[in-house]
Design a protein around this nucleic acid. Structure first.
Lengths: 339, 339
DNA sequence: CAATAACAAGTAAACGATTACAATAATTAT
DNA sequence: ATAATTATTGTAATCGTTTACTTGTTATTG
């Protein structure tokens, strides 16, 4: 592979001129620009990124640390992030921390080693609790998870609001003993549980929330337990796509039909929620917007390290489907007038 | 951040010794090793990767180019690849080529710029047709797609065999007019169609295959068309998870029940295939093994550039479920005796 | 027309590691 | 005890860029 010296020699100019042309800098005449470009083409020259990064001290690389790319929510988000990044000639290093604080720490160290320009992070509960941007040698934008008092750039769903609306929808459709399965290991799960509890309280109902790991298997087990309760819940709210999946499996297993035996609703508008019969009522998350907003925030922070901290809060969209269909009119009517 | 010089000075040794200790090379006494380690700790030193890569001319980075990470098959594979890679201190650059040859070419150029140690590639049809490892400045391992005569390292499913078994299963369960929806843009789709056609031929049945883009929307449209045919197929075989999803949507839309109105079977054992009722018969792909095998092949190729070309062929596992349940005994008995 | 500004192009010093080679010290062999 | 060998350590060149600074030209201005 040709290097900058050979190109310079071939074009009859100095290496500085070649560098300037490659970087698109001003201060180079059209004539030399053309000669350089010709030489570049003739020699099939491409600047060496390692050398460039060493000298310029910038990598144009960002880290994306999520819990697990197999979680459809993160799959979508990462795709959005990568699309924007590559369009702007940035590289993305994707890492799966598996909600494991040690792994998360290891990946953050790796980001330091790579001298990344910035990181988009979906933090574990432990890290989020004491998160301060100043503790990191690079800009960080949080996604999906953020507490009310977190002083950091972040892009999140309004989880409390979304869960509130989802629970309120169930209540208004006549359900009373609504159980909630929420993710124990993330701030998001807690906030959704909070929104659910608030809705229950607003309608004078007793909440019954059960924490579960955000995996299909754990959710299935947790749902099984909830279904053993006496009296059995008449509706179930799942705080994420994976938990909804596990919960639905538990219902199938117990041969319970929705909405006849109990209603079902959850988060994340995944294709399969429209395939089961009846289709499942969900809160759709704007994953694409979320990913794009995150990388844009990051870019702005990189450009202006001292700008004020920003938080982008996105609204989830309630998709009403058959799984939460209105209950027998007798009870429903009663509630609606009581409101 | 401290650099190697400062560490050397702090430890009272030369930079060479520090470098040797960091690289874990032999030829350094235990005494100096300890002094260096102490200095490293004291100064919180981490070697600069850009400098190391520039000088050593190796990046310990691999590229992973797939069509779309949102395709669950690739989501799983990439997760497996990343797990193995990070364990060995390698970096992964993930790229989505969207079955677009131009994008694919752009990403391969990027791999060259990054001077990657190797690439794991799921090639477009166009590239695969004239694929020669020697055309690339880095080792390449193909995944998911590979022709019989491709002279390159590859890890693939035995697609023809898997599709044959899936089709044979339908036939043996009494179905006759079996339609096949296969991915038009990938070698995999074609091979699965081939296996399907072979099975149909073996049983003296007329194949009816329809090509579709491997997206949910396109598959739904294609399935609609197939369902319009007279006489209507009595079974449908979908050549990938996404196509199966779109096909299932089309069935729901047309209010057709499986297996009563027609049987259904496909590829990829995704969680939702067990959630619909009845559950769907599928070929499960060993995505984890596939990812691991790919990165291991790549490592061996990097270590021994001249070793013989290898192909790893994995077997899909048939998961029989309700969607392909045996048809009315009259016809079935007839066929089984005829075998 | 001289003085000054504006612009183009070149020179050479970084950036922070690795590594070939030389030099020295410590062992072992004779 | 000396030579030969081996194990450590240090010196300095090198990887391929970017960029501050210098020099040389050309255009502008009073």
């Amino acid at each position: 592979m040709a290097n900058i010296k050979e190109v310079a020699h071939h074009a009859g100019v100095s290496v500085a001129s070649v560098s300037r042309v490659m970087a698109g800098h001003a201060g180079v005449s059209e004539a030399t620009r053309q000669r350089v470009l010709a030489a570049v083409k003739a020699l099939d020259y491409r600047p060496d990124l390692a050398a460039r990064r060493l000298r310029s001290r910038r990598t144009d690389t960002i880290g994306l640390i999520v819990s697990d790319i197999r979680n459809p929510f993160f799959t979508e988000v990462s795709r959005a992030v990568e699309d924007v990044a590559y369009q702007q000639q940035w590289r993305v290093i994707l890492c799966n921390a598996d909600e494991n604080p040690d792994k998360e720490a290891a990946y953050l160290d790796l980001m330091r080693d790579e001298n990344v320009s910035g990181v988009i992070l979906s933090p574990t509960l432990a890290r989020l609790a004491r998160f301060r941007p100043a503790d990191y040698p690079f800009p960080v934008v949080l996604i999906d998870r953020c507490e009310r008092d977190t002083a950091a750039d972040a892009v999140v769903l309004d989880n409390v609001d979304a869960a509130y609306r989802l629970a309120a929808h169930l209540i208004e459709n006549g359900y009373r003993r609504i159980g909630c399965l929420y993710g124990a290991v993330s701030a998001t799960g807690h906030q959704r549980q909070e929104g659910y509890a608030a809705a229950m309280a607003a309608y004078g109902l007793k909440p019954q929330a059960v924490a579960a790991q955000a995996t299909i298997d754990q959710a299935r087990t947790a749902a099984r337990n909830l279904l053993q309760q006496e009296p059995r819940p008449d509706a179930l709210l799942a705080s994420s796509g994976l938990i909804l999946l596990g919960t639905t499996e538990a219902l199938r297993e117990a041969q319970l039909r929705f909405p006849e035996d109990l209603a079902l609703a959850g988060f994340d508008d995944l294709p399969w929620t429209r395939l089961v019969e009846p289709a499942i009522t969900v809160i759709a998350q704007p994953t694409d917007d979320l990913g794009r907003a995150a990388i844009h925030l990051l870019q702005q922070r990189i450009a202006q390290p001292d700008q004020a901290v920003r938080r982008v809060v996105l609204r989830g969209e309630l998709q009403v489907r058959g799984s939460s269909a209105r209950r027998s009119p007798i009870r429903t009517g009663h509630l609606l007038t009581a409101m």
